[in-house]
Simulated scan of single mutants.
Amino acid sequence: MDARMQINAESFYNKMRNAGYASDEISFFTMLKFYEDLKDNDKVELLIAKMIEENIPLSRHSFNIWLWSCQNQESLDKLFKQAQRETTCDSSLDLFSSIAIMYNELGQLEKAQDCLNEIESRITDEHYKFSYLANLCGKLRNKHELYRVWENYNSVFPKYSSDRYSSVIYYLFKMDDIEDAEKIYEEWLSQPDGSDSEDIIEELGNDDSDSNSNSNSKYDSDSDSDYGDVIDEPRNYKRNYLLYCYVNKGLFKEAETFFNQMIQVGIKPNPFMWENLALLHIQERRISKALSCLRKFFSARGKGWAYLPSPKTVRYILKICVEESDGASQKALYQIFEEARISKSGFVILKVTLPCLKNRFILLVSFAKDAKKKKSLHLNIDGGVVNGDYAQQKCS
């Protein structure tokens, strides 16, 4: 935008102001957005000052523009004080979180702590308070506050809860404090299995950032499946969570050591563990070992359950196969799914056309015979990029 257009816009706005039409927050926001696009932070602050002077409440949108136009700590301090006064501002928690993160980046840890205290005072639900503050402490890498929030929550709800432990372990991993995370894990492992263990398993199954589906889906199956019952080891969902954290953090040596120690003491891995180990090998581009883990994934399933690997796991393998022109591994992946058929109750089909042929389309279909539903994984390979996801469909 040239200078003439800016002058014309400002002149028109001033005429509206003088006529008494541009006196509400929406009119100010239009100009705030205008100056934000021009990256004119000084003009943003001047408009904000006018709004405060005329007692015009700031919406969350106006606060956000002001926040990202702050040029120094003095500007941020003014914003923080105004945000404390604006009790009507919606999404104030997210605003204070953003201010805390900016203070933290400026090295103003006490100011960041003030934001945490402000947030804590505004949340009345203790469950939500723990979840929100624990997440923010992870972003701020504030271990001391994470422990304090956790202890406060435990004092209000002393009953054992798995999701509390898993949250603290997850955020300690984000802070690179692996030693303390392992200590919390040992304490968690010593606790009896809680009723919320299935929630942790579901959380791991849904951890596919580029997928909207349940990556470890299960569907109805007849009782006459050839697979035996899954008798999962006690506390295996806890062990798998730690394994997941190792893999997610890229700590491959620690993950392999932990997995091997489980095997040595006679613990039988469940399908989730084998898939996490497969992801470890995928990140190291050890496709043959990843495929071996997928075979064991299917063998670890049992009667009444038909888990499928996460779509992202299959995509990652295929992507590497395409990049390395590894047709043999693609065929091996097809054979794994073909061999994993569930007799009588359903079947799994994986049709693979290798990249060397004209049709580069891959289709995975899995459905139970009497379930009236089927799950499809469509994977399109185009220029070495693999996309796809499980999708619910009714059988025709």
Score class of each variant (00 low, 15 high):
I99W: 04
M5N: 07
G194Y: 01
A278Q: 06
D40G: 00
S396A: 14
H61I: 09
L279P: 03
G388I: 00
S161Q: 12
I349V: 14
R315F: 09
Q283K: 15
C356N: 11
S75L: 06
D210E: 12
I282P: 06
E120C: 04
N18P: 09
G228E: 07
K289F: 08
I101L: 15
I317R: 02
A181D: 02
I99S: 01
F157E: 03
H61P: 01
S121G: 05
I201D: 02
Y103C: 04
V348Q: 03
Q392P: 07
E284I: 12
H144D: 14
I287N: 02
A255V: 02
A371I: 05
Y237D: 05
V352T: 07
Y334I: 11
L377K: 02
T88H: 13
V156M: 12
C245D: 06
Y390G: 00
T87P: 02
L93E: 07
E198Y: 13
I231R: 11
S213T: 14
Y147C: 09
A255T: 04
S329M: 12
M175Y: 01
I7S: 14
A49K: 14
L95W: 03
R315C: 10
I362P: 04
S162N: 11
V322T: 06
E74D: 08
C356T: 13
E198R: 10
E203Y: 13
S11H: 13
L277R: 01
D196C: 06
D326Y: 05
V168G: 00
N64S: 13
E53Q: 15
D176H: 13
Y241V: 02
H61C: 10
L294N: 02
K303A: 11
D199M: 09
Y237K: 08
D389S: 11
D222I: 12
L140E: 00
Y185A: 01
Y147G: 02
N216M: 10
L76C: 06
F130H: 02
K319D: 11
C70N: 05
R301M: 05
I99M: 04
I349M: 13
D226W: 14
S162D: 07
R341S: 07
Q283D: 14
I201E: 03
F157H: 07
Y153F: 14
E86C: 08
S98T: 08
R148A: 07
N8Q: 15
L172I: 03
E25S: 14
M273K: 13
Y128C: 06
I336A: 00
K369P: 12
F297R: 03
D207I: 11
Y128M: 10
L106Q: 10
S62R: 00
Q73I: 13
I169G: 01
W188I: 06
G266K: 09
K331E: 06
S167R: 06
D2N: 09
K111N: 10
S209H: 15
K15H: 13
V230K: 01
D176Y: 10
G302Y: 00
L189E: 04
S91Y: 11
Y307P: 00
L354W: 10
L32D: 00
K344G: 07
N135Q: 13
P192E: 09
L243T: 03
